[in-house]
Lab assay of single mutants.
Amino acid sequence: LCLSCLLLLSIWRQSSGRGKLPPGPTPLPVIGNILQIDIKDVSKSLTNLSKIYGPVFTLYFGLERMVVLHGYEVVKEALIDLGEEFSGRGHFPLAERANRGFGIVFSNGKRWKEIRRFSLMTLRNFGMGKRSIEDRVQEEARCLVEELRKTKASPCDPTFILGCAPCNVICSIIFQKRFDYKDQQFLNLMEKLNENIRIVSTPWIQICNNFPTIIDYFPGTHNKLLKNLAFMESDILEKVKEHQESMDINNPRDFIDCFLIKMEKEKQNQQSEFTIENLVITAADLLGAGTETTSTTLRYALLLLLKHPEVTAKVQEEIERVIGRNRSPCMQDRGHMPYTDAVVHEVQRYIDLIPTSLPHAVTCDVKFRNYLIPKGTTILTSLTSVLHDNKEFPNPEMFDPRHFLDEGGNFKKSNYFMPFSAGKRICVGEGLARMELFLFLTFILQNFNLKSLIDPKDLDTTPVVNGFASVPPFYQLCFIP
């Protein structure tokens, strides 16, 4: 009887509104179009389906209806031109279980708008005390260089060290202080973050999100993910309590202080979104989103620089000419370093880190290209289709910094550059991430030559594609002072 009810519900949900929705493959009861999707490479499946159904089409992941946007024109039209209507966060049952609708990444409505606005202002240095965020990134870059010196030019896997640096920048912003790379508390945090990104990138998590009943009734790695997140939240809560005892309202030290001051100002407002729970989840969101994405991009960047020594040589020549050896790189240098800027952009374009971004949702019934998309429908955007558009980027599967240079060698912007997504849900940490990528890479290449253990021609730069992110294959290298 239960199975029959489930089948009827499935057929009803899939057929309701079908005539007004964009076209798509016929879904099967309960499982939807899951058999037509390669869970290990969703992006490739979407590209293949777009050739049949066009740039806007409908898919069912289990009972979950999704409208897919494929190609620059439709992505821009939805996320930028109709930004407000497409600004919801799509259904993500596992995240909803962990975050309970709080924080910045998976919240919606008034809460999301207020927490996002506050976070953006704080990350842009408003009220962050005497030290700018650039100061913090430069300090961490110097520490990163010293850690790399300790390898003494012997072969090493850069994964751990390149993970520590961006994590420490976020820790400095949230908790005021950075950690030594051997600090046990810091190592515990890094371990949880690394384990979570591995778990999130498995097909099992996609299955849990498509069939949320699994979350409560089946064993699996999703339970470890929830446990790790609870551990992080508990740790952050302890630090919040310490801040409450030592805070000077006139001299905020970090993100937590800024949030607590905002809470104090709004304590008479019963509807205020500035609560301890929102602070803890927002801090966890910033740590989770700001560590692995940047560290994976850095790791991929070094692999691509090993593979293309001629590119590395040009970057180092530009560093020598603009910065020299006697001072630290700073963000002001970027405007005088078009080639280095182009390389950083090309790394992000080429690796296509989060191929389908995080799911959006429409906040109301939306008429879009003669289709009617009902309120609450999940929207999946193919960032691959934008970053690897062959008209904007000739030979998109090739790593080529000239994609971002004009004929005179000047840096050339592209509207198709969307590694952080676009519109109202664009990554809050975009400015910070771009600063980290530029400064960390210039600091490294100012101080070291990179040496591959094998012939650069034999290095494999093909991403290890998985459910969520594209990560580089394992490699080792030597940092030669």
Results as ranks from 00 to 15, higher is better:
residue 1 L to V: 15
residue 11 I to L: 06
residue 12 W to C: 11
residue 14 Q to R: 09
residue 20 K to E: 12
residue 21 L to F: 13
residue 47 T to S: 15
residue 49 L to V: 07
residue 54 G to A: 01
residue 56 V to M: 09
residue 58 T to S: 07
residue 65 R to C: 06
residue 65 R to H: 00
residue 65 R to S: 05
residue 66 M to T: 04
residue 73 E to K: 10
residue 83 G to R: 11
residue 84 E to D: 15
residue 94 L to P: 04
residue 101 G to A: 09
residue 103 G to R: 02
residue 105 V to I: 12
residue 108 N to S: 10
residue 112 W to R: 00
residue 114 E to A: 15
residue 116 R to W: 01
residue 116 R to Q: 05
residue 117 R to C: 11
residue 117 R to H: 05
residue 122 T to M: 13
residue 124 R to W: 07
residue 124 R to Q: 15
residue 129 G to E: 09
residue 129 G to R: 04
residue 136 R to H: 06
residue 136 R to C: 13
residue 139 E to G: 08
residue 141 A to T: 01
residue 142 R to C: 07
residue 142 R to H: 13
residue 153 A to P: 00
residue 165 A to V: 08
residue 165 A to D: 00
residue 168 N to S: 11
residue 171 C to W: 14
residue 178 R to H: 07
residue 178 R to C: 03
residue 178 R to P: 03
residue 180 D to N: 11
residue 185 Q to R: 09
residue 190 M to T: 10
residue 202 T to N: 13
residue 203 P to T: 10
residue 208 C to W: 09
residue 216 D to V: 02
residue 219 P to L: 06
residue 233 E to K: 06
residue 234 S to R: 14
residue 235 D to G: 14
residue 243 H to Q: 03
residue 249 I to F: 12
residue 253 R to W: 01
residue 254 D to N: 05
residue 259 F to L: 02
residue 263 M to I: 10
residue 269 N to K: 12
residue 271 Q to P: 03
residue 271 Q to H: 12
residue 275 T to I: 09
residue 276 I to V: 13
residue 280 V to I: 11
residue 281 I to V: 15
residue 291 T to R: 02
residue 294 T to R: 01
residue 294 T to I: 05
residue 295 S to G: 15
residue 301 A to T: 07
residue 302 L to F: 12
residue 313 A to S: 08
residue 321 R to C: 03
residue 326 N to I: 08
residue 326 N to K: 13
residue 327 R to W: 00
residue 327 R to Q: 04
residue 328 S to I: 07
residue 330 C to F: 05
residue 333 D to H: 09
residue 333 D to N: 03
residue 337 M to K: 00
residue 338 P to L: 01
residue 338 P to S: 04
residue 342 A to T: 02
residue 346 E to K: 00
residue 350 Y to H: 08
residue 351 I to V: 05
residue 351 I to N: 01
residue 352 D to E: 02
residue 352 D to N: 13
residue 352 D to H: 03
residue 363 T to S: 15
residue 366 V to I: 07
residue 368 F to Y: 14
residue 383 L to V: 03
residue 394 P to L: 08
residue 397 E to Q: 14
residue 398 M to V: 14
residue 402 R to C: 11
residue 422 A to P: 02
residue 424 K to I: 05
residue 431 G to V: 10
residue 434 R to H: 08
residue 434 R to C: 06
residue 436 E to Q: 14
residue 442 T to N: 04
residue 449 N to K: 12
residue 450 L to R: 01
residue 458 D to E: 10
residue 464 V to I: 11
residue 472 P to L: 06
residue 481 P to S: 04
